[in-house]
């Protein structure tokens, strides 16, 4: 992708000094996961980060230079020959300039922001058929349910490369946040709500994900791995898990839901209504719109963040 390489080059041009400093401090570039996108969503977000950084620098750099110049030029020294006009305090022209420039910058940034905010609620453009994975955050582990493949995993989720994936998120514990920096930004997992997040991996790899919202003592260890594989390998993995005869029963789920840490696990099946029941149990009951939002999440058609709002809207 040309935009990708362009933006990353631009970034390295924009902050070479800073980066050099960090490199000497012993960090390698690929550890800056937010700046090393592996999918279209993270790429869009990186582009926005760079655009906004450049736009704000248009103001910040002149301010700092101007400050340095003024403080030096007008310092209070007896031999300073700079002009001194103690009563000069109005200049409509100058003020128009510094009302005007920020307004233009914010307008530009606002347009880009609006465009991308709406764009990211739609699945990334791809030839592959989108898939859905349901996610339940627990204290302190991540449960992934594959409604179409009928398998479940804990703390590790496999996805096919190049396929838009809608993660439908909820929580059966205090609210958490589902974040895989290299694939894209995060979305909260909220009890009683089902909210969607589109992500897609364009390169095979093992991407670290993290519960990003504080949930108590186990929070720091609340990580998971996203394994992006070519579809053949993915399908092979699915078949292997399906053949293991290790089902996720309601009893096993209840054990899993108790606070504590867990290793990665795979399950050959899970109760069909599990995700639905979890949402309902935590307050989804009194939310008539919720079921619809949840179902539409399954068919991968609803706008991702529109669902959260409909789940919250009580006036229907």
């Amino acid at each position: 992708m040309s935009t990708h390489s362009f933006t990353s080059r631009l970034l390295r041009l924009a902050v070479p000094g800073v980066l050099a400093l960090f490199l000497t401090a012993g960090c390698s570039p690929e550890q800056f996961v937010m700046l090393d996108p592996a999918g279209p969503v993270a790429q869009t977000q990186l582009r926005l980060i760079i655009i906004s950084a450049i736009l704000v620098l248009i103001v910040v750099i002149p301010v700092i230079l101007l400050l340095a110049y003024i403080v030096y030029r007008y310092r209070d020294k007896p031999d300073n020959d700079a002009s001194y006009e103690p009563e000069w305090s109005e200049s409509p022209k100058l003020e128009a300039v510094w009302w005007g420039i920020p307004i233009v910058i914010i307008a530009a940034l606002g347009v880009v922001t609006a465009k991308e905010t709406f764009a990211l609620t739609r699945p990334p453009v791809s030839n592959a058929k989108p898939m859905t994975i349901e996610v339940v955050s627990l204290d302190w582990k991540w449960l992934f349910l594959y409604p179409d493949q009928h398998i479940a995993t804990v703390n590790e989720v496999h996805i096919p490369v190049g396929t838009p994936v809608q993660f439908v998120l909820t929580s059966d514990a205090p609210m958490n946040s589902f974040w895989v920096p290299q694939l894209g930004g995060q979305e909260y997992t909220m009890p009683g709500m089902a909210m969607g997040l589109w992500l897609q991996a364009d390169q095979a790899g093992d991407y670290l994900g993290r519960g990003a919202n504080f949930t108590g003592t186990g929070f720091a260890h609340n990580t998971f791995h996203v394994i992006a594989q070519p579809s053949d390998a993915f399908n092979g993995w699915v078949q292997q898990v399906q053949s293991e005869n290790h089902p996720l029963t309601v009893e096993v789920y209840d054990q899993l839901a108790k606070p504590g840490l867990a290793q990665t696990m795979t399950f050959s099946s899970f109760p069909d209504t599990l995700f639905h029941d979890v949402v309902q149990k935590n307050g989804g009951m009194s939310m008539p719109m919720n079921e619809e939002a949840w179902t539409s999440g399954r068919t991968s058609s609803a706008s991702s963040s529109g669902q959260g709002m409909s789940g919250m809207d009580m006036n229907h």
Binding site: T44, L48, I49, S52
Partner: peptide
Amino acid sequence: GVMLAVAPADYQYHNS
């Protein structure tokens, strides 16, 4: 702060 206000980018910055 302005960078954080860019909502889609905030999906990355949030809580970081």
